[in-house]
């Protein structure tokens, strides 16, 4: 058994007086796909934002790819470059074309030659089937196309881990499918993924493990089949009965 690529131990986090994450323990091995679900306000997003330190945790350890995240971490940018993230609101850069959105970070963070970065970007855009939109601006694309571009942009950094923060929650039902398709094919390619989502169909299809969170705690963590077939805690059963 290989070393886990993400290791979280006894992690606690507060927003002011309010404790959002309580005693989180989580290990994710390379190439595993984890789906995190739970009611809103349960700390799912905060948890994955802690993994690339968009949020700071106050207690406990988070180790990503052998690097501990703490105030002392100097090269946080280097770690973030290894961890791709896709947001609920896409967060594309509206002043740059789709292609420039994808090449910006590889050129300036990874110091990749411009031509190489563009080839890579077109390749990634092709995988999510929007290479024909490369010269348009984000504002001209539909929500689904924007989100696929955001996935491509994150992949252009060739990350080891991909984090998805409710990637389909802001989309029309019709567009959800195209984004999920892109994510499924990414999962089949062997990427390590942590996905916060309410799409249980997606979880059943690709996830190795499902984590259920409520009130800042991990209530249940189980293999996907096990999770859906016989959930252990009553809270999980209630949640599943409501959304399935």
């Amino acid at each position: 058994m290989s070393d886990p690529i993400i290791k979280i131990q006894n992690m606690n986090k507060w927003f002011g007086d309010f404790q959002v994450l309580k005693n989180i323990n989580l290990e994710v091995e390379a190439n595993k796909k984890i789906v995190v679900c739970g009611p809103s306000g349960s700390g799912k997003s905060t948890l994955i934002r802690c993994i690339n330190r968009l949020e700071e945790h106050q207690e406990g350890d988070i180790i990503v790819d052998g690097n501990e995240l703490s105030e002392k971490t100097k090269d946080i940018e280097k770690i973030r470059a290894e961890v791709g993230m896709v947001f609920q609101q896409f967060n594309l850069f509206p002043h740059l074309s789709i292609l420039d959105n994808c090449t910006l970070a590889p050129i300036w963070v990874k110091k990749m030659p411009k031509k190489e970065a563009q080839e890579l970007a077109l390749d990634q855009l092709k995988k999510v089937q929007i290479d024909d939109q490369a010269n348009k601006f984000p504002g001209q694309l539909s929500g689904g196309q924007q989100q696929r571009c955001a996935i491509a942009r994150a992949l252009c950094m060739q990350p080891k881990i991909m984090l998805f923060d409710e990637p389909t929650s802001a989309l029309d039902p019709e567009m959800i499918k195209e984004v999920l398709d892109a994510m499924v094919s990414l999962a089949k390619g062997g990427m390590t993924m942590i996905v916060v989502t309410h799409e249980m169909g997606f979880a059943k299809e690709v996830a190795d493990e499902v984590i259920f969170m409520d009130e800042g705690m991990i209530i249940e963590k189980a293999d996907t089949k096990e999770f859906f077939a016989n959930p252990k805690s009553d809270r999980t059963k209630l949640f599943l009965s409501q959304i399935l």
Partner: peptide, 14 residues
């Protein structure tokens, strides 16, 4: 929006 900062940071920009 804060998302612009988040997105830039998540791509490893200082």
């Amino acid at each position: 929006p804060r998302g612009q900062y988040d997105a830039a940071k998540s791509l490893g920009m200082g």
